[in-house]
Simulated scan of single mutants.
Amino acid sequence: MAYVVTAPCKGCKYTDCVVVCPCDCFHEGDQMLYIDPEECIDCDACCAECPVDAIFYEDDVPEQWQEYIQLNAEMVAQTPSITEKKTPLK
């Protein structure tokens, strides 16, 4: 299991969550961030830092955003890792 970045991140891309991640499992896409499910250690540090409440434990992802579980897993292979805070899109 892992944490998942969902729809509220799209178009925002706040990176507050990235700097608290102890395992550097975040990846940066054009419009949002993604979490590598293979690297995530389920520490919960990122959730509290997300100002738009976009990060959920995999079992708790709301029904309307279930496709983001697979999207995160797919996009980490296509996007670069991010470990530093950047200016959000909004």
Rank of each mutant, 00 (worst) to 15 (best):
A2Q: 07
A2R: 13
Y3Q: 03
Y3P: 00
V4Y: 12
V5S: 14
V5R: 03
T6F: 06
P8K: 11
C9A: 14
G11S: 09
T15L: 12
D16C: 07
C17A: 14
V19F: 01
C21N: 08
D24R: 04
F26T: 02
H27C: 04
E28G: 02
Q31H: 06
L33N: 04
Y34F: 15
I35Q: 05
D36Q: 06
E38D: 14
E38M: 01
E39V: 11
E39H: 07
D42M: 10
D42E: 13
C43D: 03
C43I: 00
D44N: 12
A45G: 11
A45L: 12
C46L: 08
C46I: 06
C47K: 11
C47T: 08
C47G: 02
C50R: 03
P51L: 13
A54D: 01
A54N: 07
A54P: 02
I55S: 05
F56H: 12
E58Y: 04
E58A: 14
E58V: 07
V61I: 01
Q64C: 05
Q64D: 08
Q66N: 05
I69F: 13
Q70F: 06
Q70D: 12
M75F: 05
M75Y: 04
M75W: 00
V76A: 11
Q78S: 11
T79S: 07
P80D: 11
I82F: 03
E84V: 13
E84S: 15
K86Q: 12
T87E: 15
T87F: 15
K90Y: 02
